[in-house]
Structure formats: structure tokens, C-alpha cells
Nucleic acid binder design. Structure first.
Lengths: 214, 214
DNA sequence: CGACACATGTAACACGTTACATGATTTG
DNA sequence: CAAATCATGTAACGTGTTACATGTGTCG
């Protein structure tokens, strides 16, 4: 649910047709979010299906296949809801870094700590690279003012996000070190499940496996 | 690409069957990421199709429909790549807040500033709520140690993210205020496109509309 | 017995994304 | 003329997600 709302937002400024929306979407996002034209048409179809946009039959005047779309009342309402709604993460979004961390913890503290350090260095490198890019970007000011602002804000967001991730990794590390839990790198299995030989008898299936015979 | 890797990670500990994976996935994520069982089976099928996991024919021993899955060599390799790879956002991920902000800017500085302030207050409220939750959570320590650590880290992540978003909103505000760009709330149209009456002649189609007749 | 947890699986749909086909128009 | 841009659209695939159908075993 991102392209949908983007198109709605662009359409709220007046009727547009597909290719135009692609162009304006990319312009509005500072050229950072390329958008395949095909997706515009499929998304427009879906929006049309859902009654959020309507075809503007005025295409006859141009003799070409240009079909314009405009917001319907429902579309305008949906867009308004989007503007006023803050994305409440409930349940929390499936973030890759988060999931990776949790899964790593599941594999033992050592693994988790390794993931922390490797990702920290990688993220630090990314941050530096982005700062370098930013300097070059401002040096060669080629983009128009609007696009420049957009590009700058996107860059800010990426930097802030990366910093947040780094801070979170630090938190993970300290929490991991604080929890005196012993590592379960084989040998000493934790409470989680059996050491898992090739034919491990899995925890929740004990009963089933035990009396499988009717 | 999140559930896939999660299942691979769980399977790297030994063969598992579907329901078990659901249980362990939810346990590993501190009960915060509920996972529909059906999705486990479909994902397992897809992983099987891609040759990352294989069925363990040992189900015969249990007489029941329990089919276990295990990692293949390719699966183990994919998982290893996952562990060592830091998610590099290139192009940047379609973040909803970011997109909303950019689209708001496209609609004029005033609108953008309004979105900033509304989202800031909403995010602040969310932050406070989460801090409150955290206090209650630690007070009623019901969850086992592992799940508690996971839940705590997820909570940390959410808080850190929210703080980052707030910081970014502040940045947006200052950038917006710094850019002396006049607002384009009707009347004075910006460089972007025509004021867009019902039959607006769209910018990139000038030529087409002009000589449409073959 | 009836409710509930365990266990597997299918069908359907959502959105995002890419590749492809097609044609008109502009421009070098 | 040829290449690039403008312009529309379809087909196909990928993952995530939910709802549903089905059956066994446990427990109060």
C-alpha cells in the first residue's frame, strides 16, 4: 500500500493519465524511487476496480488512446484518511534486521553477537558512503529545487534510519551481554528443543509420536 | 523475503514439520509476530520448489501425516548468505512515512508542514504508549527468559524507530522552513503542472494533443 | 461429549514487480 | 531513416496473508 496512495495523491491535483503519473511520481520522489510504467496501469486498474478512481471519458477529444483518470468521492475520502492516519505498527512490521536478530538469538548468544558486530560494521560503512554521496550531491547541484529537496529528505531518512539501526544493534549487544544465559552452541542444549539429530523427536509432537498407532 | 528466511533459520537446527515451525517462529519472535499456519505450509512448498528444503520421508515411522522438512545444501548456503548479508537499501525501500511526506511536499509546503506536525504528535503518543507497555510488561514477568528477551528487543526496535522517525520529521520541518519556496495552494501554480481544470492539458502530452490528427 | 490444541493442506486474493508487445511522435 | 521518447496495456510471477476444509488426539 504505497504506490496506490502515491497515485491517489497525485490524482488529487486533477485528472492524469498513466505515463504522466509515472513521471510525476518519480519527480516527486526525487528520482529515487523508479516506477515501472506497467505498474501504474495495473494499479490504476485496481484503484478503478475499488471505485477510488474513475476513467475520464474525455479521451475522445484527443483521438489517441490517452485515458485520463480522476479521483472519485471514495478516492478522495481514502486519500484524506491516508493523510490523517499515522501508520500504527500493530503488529510490528516484519523488519528484516529485526527478524534476523531474533533468529540469530534463537541460534545462541554467540551467533547473535556475531550478527550484531558484522551488521554494525556494514551499517557503519553504509552510513559513511551515504554521507559521501550527500556531499557529492550537494556539490553537483543539477536537480531542480523540488527534486533536490525530495532527494535530500530521502537521504536524511536513510541516514537517520541507519543510525537508529546502529543504536538498536548496540542495545541488542548490551542486552545480550547482560543476560547471563549460557550459549547453546551444541553440547549444552537450552530449553528450546532437543539437540536435533537427523530424526529429532520434536517437542510439541511428543504425544502424537508416542501413541501414533490409533 | 522474511518468512522464508525465518523458516530456513529454524530448519538449520534440524528437521521440523509445519506446525512446529509456526510455534517456534512465534516463540523466537517473542509472540509478537503471529504467523498463520497456512503460510508455513505454502512457504515450505515454495522453499521445496526452489530446492532449499527437502521432505524427510521418515514420516512413515509415525503413521500420521507428519511430514518433516530439512535444509538442503542449497538451503544451507542461502541461509549463510542471509546471515552475512546486510540488507542494502538500493533503491531505498518504499517507506510509507517517507512517501507520504514527499507526496505532501508535492501538494505544497503548508500541507507538508501539517503532515509533519500531525504525525509528530501521533508518533509522540505512540512512543509514550510503548514506554507504558514496557513498564507493565516488565512488571508482570510472565514470559520465559528467551521470549522476554525477544519481546524486549522488539520493543527497543520499535522505540528506536519511532524516535528516528520523529527526528526525521524535525529535519523535514527545518528543511521545509529553510526552503523559502512559496506555497502553491492554488492560484499560483508551481513549475510542476497546470492548475488542472477538469480537462487539464497535461504537461508531457502537449505535442500529442496538439497534432493528434495523424 | 464437546471444546480445544495439534496437524496438514488448498484456494483465493492482495500488492509489487518485471518483461513483453504495440504503436505514435519527436528529433538527430 | 533511425533512435529515443511518449503512451498504453497484458501476462506472468513472487511473496504475504487469510479463510476454509479436514482430521486426530487430549482433557474436563
Amino acid at each position: 500500500m504505497a504506490v496506490r496512495e502515491g497515485l491517489l495523491s497525485l490524482l488529487s491535483d486533477g485528472p492524469r493519465y498513466g505515463y504522466q503519473l509515472k513521471t510525476q511520481f518519480e519527480a516527486a520522489t526525487g528520482g529515487i524511487w523508479p516506477l515501472n510504467v506497467g505498474q501504474v496501469y495495473t494499479t490504476l486498474d485496481r484503484l478503478n476496480r475499488d471505485g477510488l478512481v474513475g476513467e475520464l471519458a474525455a479521451a475522445a477529444e484527443t483521438e489517441t488512446a490517452q485515458k485520463s483518470y480522476e479521483l472519485t468521492a471514495a478516492g478522495r475520502e481514502a486519500l484524506g484518511a491516508w493523510w490523517s492516519t499515522v501508520p500504527v505498527d500493530e503488529p510490528p512490521p516484519r523488519d528484516e534486521l529485526m527478524l534476523k536478530m531474533l533468529m540469530a538469538i534463537d541460534h545462541g548468544r554467540d551467533h547473535a553477537l556475531a550478527v550484531v558486530t558484522s551488521h554494525r560494521t556494514a551499517l557503519l560503512g553504509l552510513l559513511q558512503a551515504r554521507r559521501r554521496e550527500a556531499r557529492q550531491q550537494t556539490a553537483a547541484g543539477v536537480t531542480p529545487p523540488h527534486d533536490l529537496l525530495a532527494a535530500q529528505l530521502v537521504h536524511d531518512a536513510l541516514v537517520v534510519r541507519a543510525e537508529a539501526d546502529l543504536r538498536w544493534l548496540d542495545l541488542c549487544e548490551s542486552r545480550l551481554l547482560a543476560s547471563g544465559q549460557p550459549d547453546r552452541t551444541d553440547g549444552a542444549a537450552s530449553e528450546r528443543s532437543e539437540p536435533a539429530g537427523p530424526t529429532a523427536r520434536p517437542t510439541p509432537a511428543r504425544r502424537l509420536t508416542r501413541k501414533a498407532r490409533r
